[in-house]
Structures are given as structure tokens and as C-alpha cells.
Simulated scan of single mutants.
Amino acid sequence: MLTMAPETFFVQLGYQYYGSGPWGGQDPRAGAYLPVIHAMRDDLTLLHVQDYNSGPIMGLDHQYHTMGGADFHIAMTDMLLTGFPVAGDPDNVFPPLRPDRVAIGMPATPNAGNGHVPPSEVVKTLDCLTRKTGCGSYATHGTWPGLRGLMTWSINWDRFGGWEFQRTFDGYFG
């Protein structure tokens, strides 16, 4: 089993910025996981980008999305499942990943980290990505009923929160 849990800075930020940029001066870590993910895509069991502890990230709709609601998770996951030009270069495209290799990473409770969203917002996210219903303001580029699932780095916080994360989403992917 091979999994990766990079932050949005190292993956989706690569849509807008990559490495130190054409003239230098950018953070060289921007999008740094893209070549690793691409090289491992056929062997990767699961990619679960951490959609938390993140600043605003530009989605494929050219709008900045911030943590705290379904739109952020929808936009960030849509990027992985649709693919995108790296640093806006149409000649350098990060191809889409298979939905069965993608999970959404999020904190289980508000105590677990910056970027927690209520379960109702996560259900909106999942419904949008897997059924294209309740999508809100972000229009996805597809529907992916084979989306792998959710990941929380903070299972002990879920226990502290009365297993709300587990109870809410355990049956969703049944």
C-alpha cells in the first residue's frame, strides 16, 4: 500500500505557482509533490491531500477558495480528478487521477486543526463530487461516484468528539 498526504501548498498551488517560478523568487516548494504524484500514479494506492492548514488556493474556476466550507473541498478535489496545467502552462499538464485513488483529507473536529467543516458541509462535498447535486457555487468538471473516501489525520480527536466523523461518514461509501 502506498499513500501520500501532502498539503494543498505542495499540490493544488501548483496550478498557479510551481517551484521558484520563471524568474525565481517564488517559494520553491510550491507544487513540489506534483512530479512525485505523477511518477507514482500507477502504483499509488491513495492520495489524500490535507485540505486543512491551508491558505486560499485558486481553483480551476480561477477563483480563490478558502477553508471552512464545501466549496474548498469540492474545488481542491475537482483539481485532482480533472487535472490542470502546472503554473498555467498548457504544455505542462498534471493529468487527472483515478477517483478510486483519491480521498479528501480533513480534521475530524474543530480541536483537530485549522479548516474543520461541519459534517453537513462534508456531505454537500461528497454529494457534489459523487452525484453532482448540491454543488453550491463551484461547478465541477465531472462526477466521480468512485471517489475513494475521506481521511482524517486526527482519529483521536474523533474519539474525543464522540466519533461524529466516523458515525457520519462510515456508511457513505458503504
Rank of each mutant, 00 (worst) to 15 (best):
W153Y: 01
P35Y: 04
R159A: 14
Y33W: 15
H116V: 01
A30S: 12
W163Q: 07
I74T: 11
V123E: 00
R98D: 13
G19P: 12
N111Q: 15
R101T: 13
T140E: 03
L147V: 05
H141P: 04
D158C: 03
G31A: 07
P110C: 03
Y33L: 10
K132L: 02
G69P: 04
L46W: 08
A5D: 08
G146D: 15
Q12W: 00
V86I: 15
D89Y: 09
M1N: 13
T3G: 08
S20G: 14
F84D: 09
S120D: 10
T143R: 07
P95K: 07
D61T: 13
H141I: 07
P56H: 01
P96K: 06
A39D: 13
T152N: 06
G19S: 09
W157A: 14
T168Q: 14
M4L: 15
P56V: 05
H116E: 04
E121R: 03
G174L: 11
L34G: 10
L46M: 14
A39K: 13
L150E: 04
G88T: 13
L44P: 11
Q166E: 12
L147P: 03
M106Q: 12
P85Q: 11
M76V: 11
A70Y: 03
H38N: 14
G14A: 05
F9D: 04
Y18D: 03
F84K: 09
G134Y: 01
I155V: 14
Q12V: 05
A5V: 08
Y138G: 06
H38F: 05
K124W: 00
N156D: 14
F169G: 05
G59D: 10
T140N: 01
P96Y: 08
M79N: 11
M58F: 07
G59C: 09
G115L: 10
L34S: 05
F10E: 11
T109W: 06
P6A: 05
D71E: 15
T133C: 00
T125W: 03
T82F: 04
D71L: 01
P6K: 10
S54Q: 08
A87R: 06
L80I: 06
V49Q: 12
T66Q: 15
S137M: 01
V49A: 09
M79L: 06
P85S: 14
Y15P: 00
V86E: 06
G59A: 09
M67H: 03
T3K: 04
G24I: 07
P107F: 03
